[in-house]
Computed example of a mutant assay.
Amino acid sequence: MKNAPPTLKEIAKRLKLSTSTVSRALKDHPSIGLVTTMRVKKLAEELNYEPNNRAIFFKQQKTFTIGVVLPNLSESFFSTAISAIENKATEEDYTVILGQSLDDENRQSRILETLRKHRVDGIILSVAKNTSNFDFIDSLRKSNIPIVFFDCVPDREDVIRIVSDLKPGMMEAIDTFVSCGHNRIALINGPQTLLASRERLEGYKQGLEKNDIPVNEDYIFVSDLSEEDNKRVMAELIALPERPSAVICFSDYVALDTMKVAKEKGLSINQDVSFISFSNFPIWNHIENKPMASIEQFAGRQAQKAADILFDLINERETSGEKLISYPSQLIHLDTL
């Protein structure tokens, strides 16, 4: 075939060398002399030779790709995370295949199955908020594809999970509000199925107890985290006979939606009602009416650790064996930015 790509055999034939010698020369193997290496590389360049990756993958039983599935790539938290993962993948000479679930469990399942069929060497996943079926874990195990979870993780002890410990940041938020004279503090939480929502609620109640403030169930709201539901919840909060003077939001995106409702109702942000939210959204630097503070969850640190562990598993390097690795969240005061 006239247009057939050049092969190692063709280079070896032209230079009257063995194919193994040509292969080692292209990899700068020390057993091959400099002159021979230069001759091989020169002819390979002239012929536009490219390694047969399929053959390499077959021999090494690797595809040198990993899958990363995140809820939404447009969120700054996840864009920070993917940067950390891609940096590690580059160090390992790997390619990253990205997928976004858009917080849809069915979409997430299809992406994971596609990655499994394409035989990626490993997967990093932050699960969709409505995930209830984790059968894909067993499916990936049967295919010998390791998976590491971070940020939004399943409530299971048999998988590796990298998370932010949300309680320290939450309790700092309660302390901050109390120090400013607030004792009517509301929580706008996420879906109760999320482990992160349960952790926020536990930290919220512990923070109130620490400051001798009774828990008022009327001040605990649950949103599905959509813009529409965030606004609905905030409207209900404002309509309470004794409106809270301070609000802790599940995320900065929830805070944006709820603060908009507050302003539309004629309330002044951080005067009539004060806000603290999770995630430490970078754009707060450029917004005039921002929350008092935001709780940093260290997306880059979580993702970096997830990638480190995944590549240790792929390359069969020794790991600590820990199943749960947690980084304490930290309150960041935005009025100093």
Rank of each mutant, 00 (worst) to 15 (best):
G300C: 06
L15F: 06
D272F: 03
I213S: 00
V233L: 10
M170R: 10
R200P: 09
V40A: 04
I185W: 01
T7Q: 12
L47M: 15
I248W: 09
K62A: 05
P71H: 01
N230Q: 13
A128S: 07
D272A: 01
A239K: 12
A307L: 02
G99A: 10
V159E: 14
S31K: 13
R232D: 11
E172W: 09
V35D: 14
K117Q: 14
E92A: 04
Q60W: 08
L112D: 04
G181F: 09
L73M: 11
V163P: 04
T37G: 09
W284A: 03
E50H: 15
I145Q: 04
L201C: 08
A255S: 12
V69K: 01
S132N: 13
V233K: 14
S126L: 05
E105H: 00
D165N: 15
T19N: 00
V120R: 04
D224L: 06
Q61H: 12
S277Y: 01
E288D: 13
S164K: 03
L208H: 03
S326H: 11
A196Y: 01
P51G: 10
I111V: 10
F58M: 15
V127M: 09
T36R: 04
S164C: 12
D252I: 06
N183Q: 14
T80E: 13
F134E: 10
D135R: 13
D175T: 12
Q330A: 15
V35I: 14
S245T: 15
H333N: 13
F77Q: 02
G33K: 09
S279H: 10
I123Y: 05
S132T: 15
S294W: 03
L240Y: 02
R243A: 08
I220A: 05
R39W: 05
A239H: 09
N87L: 11
K59Q: 13
T336K: 14
K260E: 14
I248M: 10
D103S: 08
G203N: 04
I248R: 10
F136P: 01
